[in-house]
Design a protein around this nucleic acid. Sequence first.
DNA 1: AAAATTCAAATTGTATACAAAAAGTATTGG
DNA 2: CCAATACTTTTTGTATACAATTTGAATTTT
Lengths: 234, 234
Amino acid sequence: MAKHKKSFCAEDLRARILTQDIAPGSDLDEARLAEEYGISRTPLREVLQRLAGGGFVRLEENRGAKVESMDFATMRVFFQTAPLIYCSVARQAAENRTSRQVADLKDIQHEFIGVARAGDAASAGLLNHAFHEKIGDMARNPYLLAGLRRMLIDHTRLGQTFFAPQSEADKTRVTKAIEQHDAMISAIEAQEPNLATDLTLQHWDLSRDQLEKFVRPDPLPLDVLSMKERRNAL
Amino acid sequence: MAKHKKSFCAEDLRARILTQDIAPGSDLDEARLAEEYGISRTPLREVLQRLAGGGFVRLEENRGAKVESMDFATMRVFFQTAPLIYCSVARQAAENRTSRQVADLKDIQHEFIGVARAGDAASAGLLNHAFHEKIGDMARNPYLLAGLRRMLIDHTRLGQTFFAPQSEADKTRVTKAIEQHDAMISAIEAQEPNLATDLTLQHWDLSRDQLEKFVRPDPLPLDVLSMKERRNAL
DNA sequence: AAAATTCAAATTGTATACAAAAAGTATTGG
DNA sequence: CCAATACTTTTTGTATACAATTTGAATTTT
């Protein structure tokens, strides 16, 4: 029973960090969380250590745990590195996948489609995460997988808005993402590394466009500032 | 004091794993280690959790910690992935390094040369590890760094023989490795990404040749088995 | 004798009490 | 009124006792 509560705690904290229910940079109070999850501080600390090992959390000597933050510098690196890691992983996934893993991936995609169509943004984000992590498993490359996992933490957190469509155009993008996942599954199942790589790159492009729009939104229309005010500002 | 003993424990276990003083696959007994390092089980477990987070150790539910093993499958992946990660990291290190970091790298290299020439294989392996990890820091890429760190664990363990030269040819290889490190430092300091990448690839080739010789040694001379015996063996 | 079961020992996981460190608050002196 | 210092409170780190699980041996059963 206690074992169950501990793994629930770990899973729950992970999900809350990925969905930004707990914001980047937040302090995590041991005593409060232990109380909240009904376990003592010892196992809670072990959960935090593991989350720290996975890059979800940062531990600082004598001053507790903080959710790993996302500064501008790392976001730049994120956009720079994502294609390399995602494509390398996809290629090897197509080469090395087992049929068992393909079945798992299809299950995840099935669930993903359900919640994404229903507009459950948090679940969609987490299942999208699971989808890409599963492809990481398939690649059977612990070195790339380590990098992929770090990348997915930031990607999922940044992309929280992606699956909460506002406009019709947003809904189209979600539909497109679903179709791309299906195509990726087919390529991986058919063991076509080149195709899997291409499709992954397209999928990344879609995600990147959306993310950049969020990170670097369209500038406000200039005329909200009258000429007078602009002159005064100088 | 206790804080000091804990970090010593963490550092020492890390070093013993990297030098194969503790062999891959070994069981780590909590009680024994806690006693050995003069700390209680609680902080020792935290050390193990962290080592697990870094990929040094694998924790299994209710059956303790084992040093991460190296099977044939991952070795294949290792040879496949190393050039990609090392070169990507080197390129970005050349682009992003600070002069402070270059100074640190030179210090490491200086120490490295000392112990390598003295034939202290364990220290040379650890300092070679530190050298490449420092280049990882310089790249300022947490995603690639995560993969690099995993890779270095296996590389350092596999390469334990590298810095324990037997023949004259081995000594030549160590000298060459030292020179390559110097050249890499220069390229990084001069912020020449292409050169840094080329030199890294050459450095990898040297290491790979040595590793492959160790993993797949020259076959024994056939004539140790007489013709009679070979006929009998059939 | 081989397999299964039960019991004992060892090992891992958790809770709690205590120690050490950091953060916050009040008090004192300028 | 501000600044510095001492004191209190809160939070983090460690040790230890206890609970739960696994491992290994001995006994029983087939």
